[in-house]
Design a binder for these strands. Structure first.
Lengths: 222, 222
DNA sequence: GACTGAAAAATTATCTATAATTTGAAAAGG
DNA sequence: CCTTTTCAAATTATAGATAATTTTTCAGTC
């Protein structure tokens, strides 16, 4: 039986909570009450507190000592910030990954692009998009860089799900195809340049506010 | 009385341990035993475990479930990785900070450069160097970006202290002065380009190994 | 003498209990 | 009626206790 011993309760809790925050099930500024969560997971609050420290480090929650932990809020400024950080770091990663890319990997990445184009909802699209980026970047073999990029993708996904609560429309991702074409021709610098533009593309979507009116929401769509 | 209520025991412990790891008082792979540390700080091990999660996120420690926490080890590859990440992120930060830089800030940064040149040991140099970088980058106002850069500076400092255990020699930092000159002339792109080269400069130093022989160590010197 | 394996010691992960602080609601006053 | 004060309930932060696991020790064997 696959004993899940590489997994502490704390890490499991932090993964589940991160997922809820990203999907918007836990709204910005919502309080995370440690013994409520402990009760839900059937544990004491000690591992819950450890999970909180992890979420804090990922930028998904903020801790106000003695006043509790809240889901981090965000604004357009932070969306832009994450987009620019992704551009800088993914560009770097791609330059290092390019020499190690095989046509098998590029084929997989093309499949991820097709999956994204065919995605019926925003969740499926995000999964395929993230898969594409990971496939072409992972061969850089830079663990710290990839971990930083993963955290930025989590933030990106949160912005995206917050903006596109509903009404996802299919579209063909020309950027991904241009990146793959450049990589197949060995033009790493060109591919990196397209990627950097690509991840800075910020889309707009109308969102219904709790009060019933609509406002515009912004998210990274690459 | 300055009540230190914004400070949990966990955050204090994580700061002290981070400092020890950075200064090399805790060697790579050294075990961090939770109740030994708890006893030292006169606390229970609960806040110690929370501090561990923070150190993990900063890349200063690694956790092997049920087997304890160890000081993260590192190699030349990671030194290069951190240098490249710093180049990418500090370049980005400087482009955004440039429009907000005042001559007062640049004067302070010049003082930091002089302090670095005059530093008698590697610890004083590192402090002045970090101060220089923070001064010219902080006005970008991008909290997440600055936090990421801070963590990279912590890693850089660790590499540096590990390589230059002794034998620091004073030198004049021409890069810092060139960056300031470019910024004073409003040439932000040029300043960013120099900065990006600057932080990728990896120095070499002979280090005595525990066995008595010498090997070369590498560190970021910018 | 090196290797194996069982028992002991140390250590981690978690739970239960307690003290301290904050939040929220009800009562008192302007 | 709104503001302030007071007090109870909820919540956080930490301590102390316990179970489970790993590491170390040390004797026995090849």
């Amino acid at each position: 039986m696959a004993k899940e011993r590489d997994d502490t309760i704390a890490s499991r809790i932090s993964r589940v909570l991160a997922d809820r925050i990203i999907r918007g099930e836990l709204a910005p500024d919502a309080r995370l009450r440690q013994d409520h969560i402990a009760e839900e997971f059937g544990t004491s609050h000690v591992p819950v507190r450890e999970a909180f420290r992890r979420l804090e480090a990922q930028g998904l929650a903020i801790n106000l000592p003695r006043r509790g932990v809240r889901v981090a809020s965000f604004d357009l400024k932070e969306v832009r910030e994450v987009a620019e950080m992704r551009a800088a770091l993914e560009g770097l990663a791609l330059k290092h990954a390019a020499p190690h890319l095989t046509s098998a990997i590029l084929d997989e990445a093309e499949q991820a692009t097709r999956d994204g184009d065919a995605a019926a909802d925003v969740y499926a699209w995000e999964e395929a998009n993230r898969r594409f980026h990971r496939l072409i970047l992972a061969p850089c073999g830079m663990a710290r860089l990839l971990a930083a990029i993963d955290d930025l993708h989590a933030a990106s996904a949160r912005f995206l799900f917050s903006a596109w609560q509903s009404g996802w429309e299919k579209r063909t991702d020309h950027d991904h195809r241009a990146i793959l074409a450049a990589l197949r021709q060995g033009k790493a610098e060109e591919a990196a340049a397209i990627l950097q533009k690509h991840v800075q593309w910020i889309g707009r979507a109308p969102v219904r506010t709790p009060s019933g009116s609509t406002r515009e929401a912004f998210a990274i769509v690459g």
